[in-house]
Nucleic acid binder design. Structure first.
Lengths: 252, 252
DNA sequence: CTGTTTCGAGAGCGGTGCTCTCGATTTGGA
DNA sequence: TCCAAATCGAGAGCACCGCTCTCGAAACAG
C-alpha cells in the first residue's frame, strides 16, 4: 500500500522480468537466482490458494504450504498487498496477452472476426481463472489502492478492441457512425482519442467503449453467478450479445 | 451460510417486515419490540461501517459502536454472513424501489424517457451507496453463498427494464427487431420469457438484457475507479452510453 | 579467514469471527 | 404474587489473521 513498499516489490520483479542474460549485465549470483525462484514459488502457491479458497488470500496459509513460517514471506514481499499486486499485474498481463493474441491470430481484414475472437478470448481466460478475474474486475479490496503500474496493462483489452475499430476506419472497411457526440462529452472523448493515440471518431470510440463495458458485464454476470439459470447455452448467449455490440460499432 | 442460520435470521425479520398492527395479530411483547429495534440499530451501524470502511465489515467494531461486547451481536444475528445477508436484502430492495419508482414517475407513453430514468436511478443509487452496491454486484465473498431470498429482489431492476420494452410492444410503440435468435439460444430466451411472464419477442429480450448488462458495467466501471480519468463529464457519458442501448433496444 | 549481508524461525501484538459459560433481568403462567 | 423459563449482555477463551522484532545460522564478498 505504501509507495515505498510497492517500489521495493517492483524491484524484486526486475530481477526476473529483465532477464539477466541480456547484454552487458553480470550474471546474478546463486543467491539472487534462488531468491527469484522463491518469489516465483510463492506466487505460484498464492495463485493456487486464490483459485481454491477465493479472494481472501492468507499469507500464513501460503507460508504453511511452503513449509515456512509466515514471517519468512516478508523477506520477499513487504506486505500481503504487495503479493496481491504482483498477482494482479501478472493476471493483467495474462489477460492482455490472451486478448491480443486472439486478435492477432484472426484475419486482419475480418474486423468482426477479430472483435469476436478478442471478446471470446477474454471470456475464456476469465472462465479459466475466475479468482484472478475477480481480483482484477471485482469490487476493490477496501484498503487496497491499485498502483500506477497496473493502469497500462489494464487497458490492453479495451485498447485491442478500439484498435480493431481504428483499423476498420483506416482501411475504409468500417463506416463511422454519422452522429456527433454532444458537446461536453465530445471534448472528453476527443482527449481520450489523443491519449490513446488512435485516430477514431469520438462517436465510434464511445461505441467501442460500450463494447468493452458490455464484455466486462457479460463476463462478470456469468462468473459471479448472476446469469440467469434459465440460460444453459452460455456460449451462444455470449456470442450473440457480443455480436450485438459489434453491430453497434458498425462492424460488418 | 448454513441454511438453518439463514432461516433463523429471516425469522428475526418477519417480526418487523410483517407489522404487528395488521389484522388478527396479537401485539408483540415489549421485549419483542426492543429486540426488533436492536436488530434495526445493528443494521444501521453496520451500514454506516460499510459505507466508511468498505466491504470488510467487522462485527466487533459494530458491537463496540453499540457499546456492546461482540458476542452480544450473536443474540440477533447467528453469524456475520447473516448480518451481511440482511444488509444485502435491504440494499436490493432499496435499489429496486429506486428503479421502479423512477420508471413509474415517468410518462407511461415515453418509453425512452422511462428507460433513461430507470437507468439513471440505478446509477444515482449506486453512487449514493457505493459500498452497498459493491456488496450486491462486486465479486462474491468467498465463503458466502447468496440465499434464495435474494434472487427475486435482485431481478427487479432488469425486470423493470424489460417491462418497459414489453409495454412498448403491447402498445405498438416499439417495433421488435426483425431478426430471429439462432436456435439453441432462442429456446433458452423463450423459456426466460415465460419465466418472467413478459410477452416479448426473444430477440428483444436479449437486447433488453444487453441494456441491463451495460448498465451494470457502466456503474461498476465508474464506481470501481476503472472509468478513464480523462472523462470528467461522467453524467453525460453515462447518458450517452445508456442512450446507445436504448437505440439498440429500438426505443424511439 | 573475517566482517557483512541475507535468511528462516520464533515470539509477540493487536485484530478478527465465533463458542461457551455465567449471572442478571424480563417474561408469562400457576 | 411467586417461580420456573426464557432471554440477554458480559467475559473468557480458541483459532486464525497481518505484521514486527529479535536472534542465530548460513552464505556471501573482500
Amino acid at each position: 500500500m505504501r509507495a515505498s513498499q510497492v517500489k521495493s516489490s517492483a524491484l524484486s520483479f526486475d530481477c526476473c522480468s529483465h532477464p539477466w542474460h541480456s547484454e552487458g549485465m553480470v550474471a546474478p549470483s546463486l543467491r539472487a537466482r534462488v531468491r527469484a525462484g522463491m518469489i516465483e514459488e510463492i506466487k505460484t502457491v498464492a495463485r493456487r490458494h486464490l483459485d481454491t479458497d477465493g479472494a481472501n488470500l492468507s499469507l500464513r496459509a501460503v507460508a504453511r504450504d511452503l513449509g515456512m513460517v509466515s514471517s519468512a514471506i516478508y523477506r520477499y514481499f513487504p506486505s500481503r498487498d504487495d503479493l496481491l499486486t504482483a498477482l494482479i499485474l501478472e493476471a493483467y498481463d495474462a489477460l492482455g496477452d490472451a486478448v491480443e493474441a486472439a486478435d492477432a491470430a484472426a484475419d486482419r481484414a475480418d474486423l468482426r472476426g477479430r472483435w469476436l475472437a478478442a471478446c471470446r478470448a477474454a471470456r475464456a481466460w476469465a472462465l479459466a481463472h475466475p479468482a484472478e478475474y475477480a481480483l482484477l474486475y471485482g469490487s476493490p479490496v477496501p484498503g487496497y489502492a491499485a498502483p500506477d503500474d497496473t493502469v497500462a496493462p489494464a487497458q490492453r483489452p479495451p485498447v485491442t478492441l478500439v484498435g480493431i475499430l481504428r483499423d476498420g476506419v483506416a482501411t475504409g472497411r468500417l463506416a463511422p457512425p454519422d452522429e456527433e457526440l454532444p458537446e461536453p462529452l465530445r471534448g472528453d472523448v476527443a482527449e481520450l482519442v489523443e491519449l490513446l493515440g488512435m485516430d477514431v471518431p469520438p462517436a465510434l470510440l464511445a461505441r467501442g467503449m460500450a463494447g468493452w463495458t458490455q464484455l466486462f458485464g457479460l463476463i462478470s454476470f456469468e462468473l459471479f453467478g448472476r446469469i440467469n439459470r434459465a440460460l444453459p447455452h452460455r456460449d451462444e448467449y455470449f456470442d450473440h450479445q457480443i455480436g450485438l455490440m459489434a453491430d453497434l460499432a458498425g462492424l460488418p
